[in-house]
Design a protein around this nucleic acid. Sequence first.
DNA 1: AACCTTAGCAACCGCCTCGAG
DNA 2: ACTCGAGGCGGTTGCTAAGGT
Length: 321
Amino acid sequence: MGRSPCCCHDVGVKKGPWTEEEDKTLVEHIQKRGGHVGSWRGLPKAAGLNRCGKSCRLRWTNYLRPDIKRGNFSDDEERLIITLHAGHGNKWATIATHLEGRTDNEIKNHWNTHIRKKLLRMGVDPVAHQQLPPDHQLDGSSAALLPEALLWAAAAATLGGLDIGALRQAQLLQHLLQAGSNNDATNLVANLMAASNVGLNSSNSIVPNILLQDKFNMLPGTNYLQPGYLCNTSNFAEQDVVQQQLINAMSPGTSSFAAAEPADQLCNTAAFTARDIAPGIDMLPVQEFAGLMEPMEQLPNLCSLESDSFWKELLEDGYRL
DNA sequence: AACCTTAGCAACCGCCTCGAG
DNA sequence: ACTCGAGGCGGTTGCTAAGGT
């Protein structure tokens, strides 16, 4: 298949930065046609522009389009980009479809100039989305940022080919991280409920309740889920039962993490099982979840929190990341 | 003040994919 | 099944402004 010559090679076609006048001409031409461009190749002549069609399309889609959102990227947008990048790689156009008002070019530029460097500073390989070996990390000054970066990168890498369920799981993780941002119990409960909403409502996706369980266990006197088990139901009615019973069981008077026992210790003293909460719901041993997490070689076993100093410190710090 | 370096980003280039004929 | 035109995409370039010496 022979490649057609690009109109950009035409002699006399202007290149380089667009002037205000050119922008105005292009916008007015497209608006006159009700936003419908038709043929980009034929547009310059029709609009009276000395540009190639490709250049016009690029200028319109990346800059002049009315629905483009400009300005700094929010933390949420950055997290989403990292998550999506782990699943899709440099498929900027695919990533852009998940960020309303952002163009692939803008996301690509932001990745290369900001996010990539941020991840490197945090000791995370921006390509493999895994922790870099110690001798490849920049310095220890950003060590406090490592847990969040790791969790995000690892979760994203684990999710692999992203689908709606996977994205919801990523959101769940995000809520969990937000829940750990301070010691306010009310905020924690609100975030946990938000997290469980995302997880429990996702159809055909396994909700990592082991993570929720650790969060719940951080509240004194609460043990809601049998450690080592996951809720694997996609039945909304059953999910609602679980959720309602979790909410009912939640004791609102609990205050801080300060008196919380280490998670593993609590794991061994579960007050009642998940089957007590919602009989009939299929529960899977955590080993199956561990199977899902297999690619996360850099992460410690989630059931061995107490034995790993990194995670132990993280837990004792009340998930303050 | 002049020069150099770096960061940010708009725009370009060339290959790929898709759909009509 | 094949060709070809057109749009889409990702990598890269080059300009500009800000910061440093």
